[in-house]
């Protein structure tokens, strides 16, 4: 039984992307990704105002034995970051799809996310990787 939320889209590099309906998207990493990394010890977030391009790394999540880049699935400008993660990176381990969100991007082209995976597509991707 999949726990992958169906209200959002997914990148192959394991980020999720939720349309806020106001031209902005909330971005985080998937529960599957946090599980692979293990206990997170630090999250390096972009600064508000940073311009990001789809496919470019703009944040880092660190566990004890690994560090992984987080790629923005869309092009735009960072308009908010989840400052609560600073000092509580474990929030991503506990609630990757909810309180563990990482940053919000205001996009120019809302259609950009259409090419990303839906929940079923992402589940299939994970199944394939395993």
């Amino acid at each position: 039984m999949s726990n992958t939320p169906t209200d959002r889209r997914y990148a192959k590099s394991h980020e999720w992307l939720k349309d806020e309906g106001d031209g902005s998207f909330t971005i985080g990493i998937t529960d599957h990704a946090q599980g692979l990394l293990g206990d997170l010890v630090f999250v390096d977030l972009p600064e508000v105002g940073t311009a990001v391009e789809a496919g470019n790394d703009c944040a880092v999540v660190e566990s004890v034995k690994a560090a992984s880049d987080v790629y923005s699935p869309v092009t735009g400008e960072v308009i908010a970051v989840n400052e609560a993660l600073d000092g509580a990176p474990e929030t991503i381990n506990d609630d990757a799809f909810g309180n563990g969100w990482m940053f919000k991007v205001k996009v120019a082209d809302a259609g950009e996310s259409d090419s990303l995976l839906d929940a079923a597509g992402y589940d299939a991707l994970i199944a394939e990787e395993e």
Partner: peptide, 12 residues
Amino acid sequence: LQAREQHIRRSK
């Protein structure tokens, strides 16, 4: 803080 170091982070 080993994720800063070359044996984990390699080129970064």
